[in-house]
Amino acid sequence: MDLFYLAISATFVNNILLAQYLGNCPFLGVSKKLETALGMAVAVVFVTVMAAIFTWAVFTFVLVPYNLEFLQTLSFILIIASLVQLVEIIIKKQSRMLYNALGVYLPLITTNCAVMGVALLVAKKEYNFLEMLVFSSTSAVGYGLALILFAGIRERLVISAVPKSLQGTSIALITAGIMALAFIGFQGMA
């Protein structure tokens, strides 16, 4: 039951994008079209979970036993960067279709702070393996959900009359603010 609460909280209440503000650069960058947003969302879910598993393992079995926690930042970013490269190579070899769908988004993910953020949050909250798995996957799904919903809104924004100064990133941020307000409504749930 605790895991269920954790899942709901990570997806909706503490939505990684709208409540913790992680991964905003790709959020504003790729949300102009629904199709690209969908691709990015899938790639983020995939990489976040993989990265969380690896960084969790390194943190629990290497850094903590040897008192090397100060190397956390350095080791996490290296793990994530090499993992993304590895995933790219494997996908390219194994599945052409998947590569065509996700390929362009993978290099972008290295600098997506949502991936690193989830890894750091897992380490900070000292989750066990199962909690880590639930937390990372539901956080990533929450990110994807917000991204896809937002892309839908942004597609309609293009055809509406927006004052000149507000066009582009400006109106996108205000829209995201209103969406974040809607997500606050979930706060009573957990």
């Binding site: 709208l18 990133t169 109106i171 603010g177 209103i178």
Partner: peptide
């Protein structure tokens, strides 16, 4: 949280 997005959006608009 939502206030952050709106503040930044408005500042960007003022700058534009």
């Amino acid at each position: 949280a939502p206030g952050a997005f709106v503040t930044l959006g408005i500042l960007l608009a003022v700058q534009n």
